[in-house]
Design a protein around this nucleic acid. Structure first.
Lengths: 242, 242
DNA sequence: TTTTCGCATGTTACATGTAGAGTGAACCGA
DNA sequence: TCGGTTCACTCTACATGTAACATGCGAAAA
């Protein structure tokens, strides 16, 4: 997976440590800052300002900001600069329309390439996942939920599917800065279990269908404008004013 | 000029378009050069070289090259520069796996949003298309084929679907520089006709299925390593050595 | 008061300078 | 003949300079 170690608390927007290319480090830094909420949606991404804060020149910052706009984590107007993107419920609904079919094809390809052997690995993630949900650990739930889907698309091995879903996942993470969009950890785990079951039997059609149904359920929850409430969680759809 | 009245805005002055950036022009220029074959796959994209040839400084060229990298028309290795991407049959097969479901969802959304009204417009394209095919006009065939699909995804209105399919279309165009991949203009027209028929009835499921089947057929032709030959065309799958 | 103008400030987009990595051809020793 | 080294050259990645443009605010005008 990607991302820095999580055991050391990270001050996003601290001076950047040059790993390989400064551009890459700046890009990673800004990305994390956006996901963590340190850079809220709507925040202006001033190249000179960020360059000074990160103690690098404007060139790598400029390139990193441009890359963020490719990812749709920032939006840019010519000669007016870039701001951190805002992903609202309507955007998410649109996104999930695509995600539905992509997760479906990812599951199909995963069965074709990795076969039922993948089921064991997913089972391990799933067990940790349901444990986290049982303990009400929201952050861990999110993490393992993403890992589950990530593992499936990696197993499928199709570069374009992986790329598209990575991008969608980034959008969803960004949406979570201003909106809580889970339709209930318990339902997620149940859906995941069905996907694993289909993969275990080696039935590609069933796997595709289960994966699609999972996202379709989330999509419908979004469309109703509210998520399914569960007794042990306060999750709901909460959209903040723009 | 005296003070204009505020309730009647001056209407012969449209907002001036501010987007005359050199970067955009360079990007467009390189893109066309790649599609036309003037910049063959594998060609090194030297920033200083291109800057001199295009008579601009290196900055906008650098940014344009990075953009090409982002939409996979070029591939870049850190500190080694970028070269024009090469899309071979294996890449195309992978691509079509995604394209299949995306064209499907695009058709579904098009029916939902535009309804049967869209069918008339597609019919117009289709008629020109079959005329071009009848005359053996290959370039026109390609153009109208792309227009057909483009119109459907635009009608669907999902930004992410549009973007993903635009990117895929660019890859296909790039592949055509070294490979002829059409599985026969006549079959394409026939498939398109089925899609239009489904859209005309307003049956979203049928439209999705017809669009998926269309791409699935192309995918299978690719996988066999050869396209269906037609009497009036010399189209085949011809992969040049790398 | 309301609108307009002028100024100050900040930013983008592009141009250009440069250290050091990457590359290839000539050269060398075996 | 052939593997290795040198060296000249090119390019990338980053730093920095600057003109044109955007923007916010206070003063002047209506």
């Amino acid at each position: 997976m990607t991302g820095p170690r999580k055991d050391t608390p990270v001050d996003h927007l601290a001076p950047v440590r040059t790993s390989e290319r400064i551009t890459d480090a700046v890009y990673e830094s800004l990305r994390q800052a956006i996901f963590s909420g340190a850079l809220q949606p709507g925040t202006k991404l001033s190249v000179p300002g960020l360059a000074e804060r990160l103690e690098v020149s404007r060139s790598p910052v400029r390139e990193a900001v441009v890359r963020l706009t490719w990812d749709r984590l920032a939006v840019e107007e010519p000669r007016r600069g870039a701001v951190v993107a805002r992903v609202d419920l309507a955007d998410l609904a649109e996104l999930y329309e695509v995600r539905e079919v992509l997760e479906g094809v990812a599951a199909r390809l995963a069965v074709r390439r990795a076969g039922p052997a993948l089921a064991g690995e997913l089972e391990r993630i799933l067990r940790k996942h349901e444990q986290a949900v049982a303990l009400g650990n929201l952050a861990e739930h999110t993490e393992l939920d993403m890992s589950f889907h990530s593992r499936i698309r990696e197993a499928g091995g199709n570069h374009h599917v992986i790329r598209a879903l990575d991008e969608i996942q980034a959008q969803v993470r960004l949406a979570m800065v201003t909106t809580t969009v889970t339709s209930g950890p318990h339902s997620a785990v149940a859906d995941h279990r069905r996907i694993v079951a289909a993969i275990r039997t080696g039935d590609a059609d069933a796997a595709e269908e289960a994966a699609r149904a999972h996202i379709a359920r989330l999509k419908h929850a979004l469309r109703q404008g509210e998520a399914e409430q569960e007794p042990d969680s306060a999750d709901t759809v909460r959209q903040e004013p723009g």
